[in-house]
Design a protein around this nucleic acid. Structure first.
Lengths: 345, 345
DNA sequence: CACGCGTTCGAACACGTGTTCATAATATAT
DNA sequence: ATATATTATGAACACGTGTTCGAACGCGTG
């Protein structure tokens, strides 16, 4: 069933059908009604590709998730805590604006190349990259070649020759600062930090936030109190073991992600210590499990809804109306106090 | 950049470019190499819509999730436990076969109509429906009109006039039977059941499994021991309260989903009872939180990986090679024993 | 040289739509 | 009755590709 057949069946011309489908003027109410009747009767829907080809851009955006720790033979587990709400929210907001979402996971086995293809072959009219620290250079190339992109959690680019793009960040430094400050206000002095990947923007900024709070409070920043846990549960586990084995004075840990905090909790329990009586712990992200785990986790909530809403809306603006220049947005964080942190008496 | 320009730049004809892009014979190695060089240099990627329009079907499938309990203003929380691994796995498997995935969430606000459009306008070449009990009739219409679809957790259709389609189920009855039997083997006699939506296939089958195990063990099936909890956390919470208020003898509960079990656990704790000392509880699904919650939840694991793998592979077969007749698959379940169930002494 | 074969060309059509435009038919106002 | 505005037509072109086919080209072989 195509517009030609509909035109024939309705006894009008193809251009009239087109006008009706695309809501144009210069069609009498009578004709409009009659044609719509036929369209409904035969369940006619304009062919998406033909439409796209004929000039109308695709109402489809890509959500590109980089998942470095993913082994394609097993189902993602911890990683999906971030992925899931983000993607779900993106689908929701995109839908509100009449857009569809194509989700692509990029990992070691699935190369970045696929994202490029989807953008170049116009399957999607734009895309949102999340967790793409390792592909920044590739993304910049895409931007330079005119792709309409949003990057989540990425440092502002100083290169003025880079084309128009959109960046959405959460206030990583501020969040980490508040997490550490919370522990300081609870009377802790020996506060360790399990940090994330140092080649990731968020990992770096959160470390900075930790340091800032420590310095402000006049507390020493000791190298042996900072361990890198690469944002995985196992990384958190190993880091906590290392920290507590070497340093008996530690009374609190700030982990750069809830996932690592959960690993750390496991390690701490195994070592016979009690949370929060012996050790307080604060995470980051407020993933779902944070409130279900025992003890429930004090953490920094990143408003994914907020970030995604901004990301999708700006992207659609970019696609439909273009933007004058690059945009840089930040969204605030919030300290969520639960059972895993406790005042030192 | 299109094939015409590439042809010009490489000094060949457009048909030669096409042959190379589509891996056809009758092209000398020399020409092939030279043209590929130019293609790479200019980053040419054939326009997806043009290609699709010219006959080649789209390598894109839709994953349609029905989420009845979703309020579009808030982020899905509990619901995404099922959604997330399913979608992630679908993306993985589809990717392995060279397919992209378009995810659509259907709820009260987002009508089924959108799925129909995506199928009819050929945005996707086929689709997988999950949790679509309320839209079965609509789905059947799609199948009758020639759409290539997979339905997850849906009763086999007896209507022979229905077109070719694929159904993938987990063994709901068997799983529920094993869950109940597990409690019986642990010495429980007063076993209550919090069941899911009765208009959902899985809800019905799991209730049947519960009944079968009870009957087999010679235990009475009492109406006041069966409460409907509509698959939500709150439903589980309310159901448990109702059950335990009315019936003091109950020592075990089998909930038709982990989500409801989690709600029930909350209710039980609030009533001052201890799990598993006073009450044993078994869930269904083995969602991620089941192993993190305290006490960790005994449950029936549904191998989503397995189901999705079958769903995606059969769908791609259906799209590319067609199938002779409808297919009906079932995948086994597995009892995962954790802390929430205990032997009666 | 003649022949055959693999290679390449170039033109043409198809896919289904959007868009434009001169023209024609019809309705409305003067 | 005439002028004007509205509505509809049908043809034409564009979008970028796949596909097909007769013709031509270049090469080596007999």
């Amino acid at each position: 069933m195509n517009s030609k057949e509909i035109a024939k069946l309705a006894g009008v011309s193809r251009s009239t059908v087109s006008k009706i489908v695309n809501d144009y003027a210069n069609v009498s109410d009578k004709t409009r009604k009659e044609v719509i009747e036929v369209i409904k009767k035969y369940g006619y829907v304009p062919h998406a590709s033909a439409r796209n080809l004929a000039g109308k851009f695709n109402k489809m955006i890509g959500v590109f998730i980089t998942d470095v720790n993913h082994d394609s033979k097993k189902l993602r587990v911890i990683e999906s805590d971030y992925f899931s709400p983000f993607t779900t929210a993106a689908i929701d907001y995109a839908d509100e604006l009449g857009y569809n979402v194509l989700v692509l996971v990029i990992d070691k086995n699935r190369e970045f190349e696929k994202a490029r293809k989807l953008l170049y072959n116009k399957t999607v009219s734009g895309g949102i990259f999340i967790g793409a620290e390792n592909n920044v250079q590739e993304i910049f190339k895409l931007i330079k070649s005119g792709c309409k992109l949003v990057i989540i959690d990425q440092e502002k680019c100083k290169d003025k020759t880079l084309g128009k793009h959109i960046i959405v960040n959460s206030k990583n430094l501020e969040g980490a600062y508040n997490a550490t400050k919370h522990l300081i206000e609870y009377g802790h002095k020996n506060i360790a930090h399990i940090c994330g990947d140092m080649n990731k923007f968020s990992g770096l900024k959160r470390l900075e936030g930790y340091k800032k709070a420590m310095i402000e409070a006049g507390l020493p920043i000791e190298n042996e109190c900072i361990v890198e846990g690469d944002f995985t549960e196992n990384g958190g586990y190993e880091s906590a073991k290392k920290l507590l084995k070497n340093n008996k004075k530690i009374t609190a840990i700030f982990a750069s992600s809830d996932t690592m905090a959960i690993g750390a909790i496991k390690a701490i329990k195994e070592m016979g210590l009690v949370i929060p009586d012996n050790i307080s712990i604060v995470g980051y992200d407020d993933i779902k499990i944070a409130s279900y785990i025992s003890p429930s986790l004090t953490t920094i909530r990143v408003s994914i809804l907020n970030m995604v809403s901004i990301a999708v809306k700006s992207l659609v603006d970019f696609i439909e109306k273009d933007i004058k220049s690059s945009k840089y947005n930040t969204v605030p964080t919030e300290l969520i106090i639960r059972e895993s942190s406790k005042k030192i008496i």
